[in-house]
Structure formats: C-alpha cells, structure tokens
Simulated assay, not measured.
Amino acid sequence: MEIERRLAERVRTFRKAKGWSQEELADQAGLHRTFISQVERAAKRTTIRSVERIAKALGVSFGQLLD
C-alpha cells in the first residue's frame, strides 16, 4: 500500500501546484473525476497506463509521480 499512498500524495501535490481541481485533472487526463479522487485517497489501484495519462496531464514524468 506504500506505493499507492506515495502516488496519491504526489498526484495531489502536482495537481494543487497547477491550481487544478480533481475535475480539471480528470478532464486533462481523459479520466473520470471519481477515479482521480480514488487515486488521491489511495483507495484505488491503478494501471501503468492511467498513471502515464495523469503524468502527461500534469506535465511531469512517470518517475516524478512515484519519486
């Protein structure tokens, strides 16, 4: 569960730095807002493809989300 918590924290940090709502991030990544909410709460495991979509939307590398 450690990696899910780390991902949740990093997604939230990068999203807030852009001043985006969860809905805006979801729109930019082509994902559903509730999915982003679940990721940020570490309540949902996600695929590598979804993490890549989130990273691209945020303008960061895949590795930065897990660093």
Rank of each mutant, 00 (worst) to 15 (best):
M1N: 00
M1K: 00
I3S: 02
I3R: 03
I3K: 02
R6W: 07
L7W: 00
A8E: 01
A8F: 04
R10N: 05
R12A: 01
R12N: 03
T13S: 10
R15K: 01
K16T: 07
K16V: 05
K16P: 04
A17Q: 11
A17S: 14
W20H: 09
S21Y: 02
Q22F: 10
E23N: 09
A26C: 10
D27V: 04
A29G: 13
A29T: 13
G30T: 10
R33P: 07
T34Q: 02
F35C: 10
I36Y: 01
I36E: 03
S37P: 00
Q38N: 06
Q38G: 06
Q38S: 07
V39K: 03
V39Q: 00
E40A: 06
E40Q: 00
A42M: 02
A42E: 00
A42D: 02
K44F: 12
K44D: 03
K44P: 13
R45Y: 04
T47C: 13
I48T: 13
R49A: 13
R49V: 14
S50N: 14
S50F: 13
V51P: 08
E52C: 14
R53I: 14
R53Y: 13
I54N: 07
I54L: 13
I54H: 07
I54Y: 08
A55E: 11
K56W: 13
K56Y: 13
K56T: 15
A57Y: 06
G59Q: 09
S61E: 15
S61P: 11
F62C: 06
F62A: 06
G63K: 14
Q64V: 11
Q64P: 10
L65N: 09
L65H: 12
